[in-house]
């Protein structure tokens, strides 16, 4: 049945990556270069070429992902390989550097590579963690249902509030019109809105309701119940937005830095050959 991309094909790509990395490490250990280990030895070049090929292939994933319906390959296959070979790249490229770092374009390319791979690792962590949290948070409702539910609760509140005084009504109206879901990236990632209009309206209405009597008290109780339900739902939606934001945010690092990495890489290679 369902299997996650980590265990895909019984860890095939983990095995391949492990073999690849092991060979590289063994070669690095037994290799005795002239001077310090560096990118200029035959092993250095070999590791560099492997890294280069890996980077090109890994970046190709973005294109492969969008070539829908062509070929027989399954995207999960690619995704699984992308993850394990990406991790392998981290090690192989480090060996290629021979642990020589400086204030130059070569180290810059290396840093970009580190950023890309680590953002990818974070993405992997997000992919493993957040879907489950999202499912639990959402319960059995689908996203469309939830929005409709908020809308219907809002109009229900407005109807009930018509029986109450203007102050309450304007609070309810404000909560209907000015409640914000989403918003800035930081707010999305935090998953909470400390200034949530609806939450504040609920607090104020609860306080005002203490002084109501008779029919008004009845309506107020009803209103507070529905408002509380709405606030609870809003918080759940905010959580859902939060999880979704964490699922997406790493891509805003991963993709631009991949482009930057490729540019730096081209310069790195040109520089190496020009200033041999």
């Amino acid at each position: 049945m369902h299997s996650s991309l980590l265990v895909f094909k019984n860890f095939l790509y983990l095995k391949i990556s492990t073999v690849l990395v092991s060979i590289c490490i063994i070669a690095y250990v037994i290799h005795e270069p002239l001077g310090k280990p560096n990118g200029g030895t035959w092993l250095g070049y070999t590791l560099g070429i492997i890294s280069l090929l890996l980077i090109i292939w890994l970046a190709w994933y973005g294109i492969r992902k969008r070539s829908y319906g062509s070929g027989k390959l399954v995207l999960e296959d690619w995704a699984s390989a992308h993850v394990y070979l990406g991790i392998a790249l981290l090690i192989i490229a480090t060996l290629h550097s021979g642990f020589q770092f400086g204030l130059n374009i070569h180290t810059l390319a290396y840093i970009f590579m580190i950023i890309v791979v680590s953002s990818g690792l974070f993405g992997l962590y997000a992919y493993m963690r957040y879907p489950k949290l999202r499912t639990i948070n959402r319960g059995e409702a689908s996203v469309g249902d939830v929005w409709e539910l908020v809308a219907s609760m809002s109009s229900e509140c407005l109807v009930i509030a018509q029986d109450l005084n203007d102050e309450v009504y304007s609070l309810v109206e404000e909560s209907d019109k000015k409640t914000i879901l989403g918003g800035s990236l930081l707010r999305q990632l935090s998953g909470v809105d400390k200034n949530c209009i609806s939450t504040r309206a609920l607090e104020k209405i609860s306080k005002l309701a203490e002084n109501f009597t008779g029919d008004e008290a009845d309506s107020a109780r009803k209103l507070v119940t529905v408002m509380a339900r709405k606030v609870e739902l809003l918080n759940r939606i905010r959580k859902d937005i939060k999880y979704k934001a964490w699922l997406d945010v790493w891509l805003y690092v991963h993709i631009p830095f991949t482009v930057a990495l490729i540019v730096a890489l081209v310069i790195h290679i040109l520089v190496v050959f020009l200033y041999w």
Binding site: S3, Y68, G69, G71, L73, E76, A79
Partner: peptide, 14 residues
């Protein structure tokens, strides 16, 4: 050739 494209396009196997 490869079967349903929705399934093939799923990166996570969901």
């Amino acid at each position: 050739d490869g079967g349903a494209s929705c399934v093939r396009a799923c990166p996570t196997g969901a």
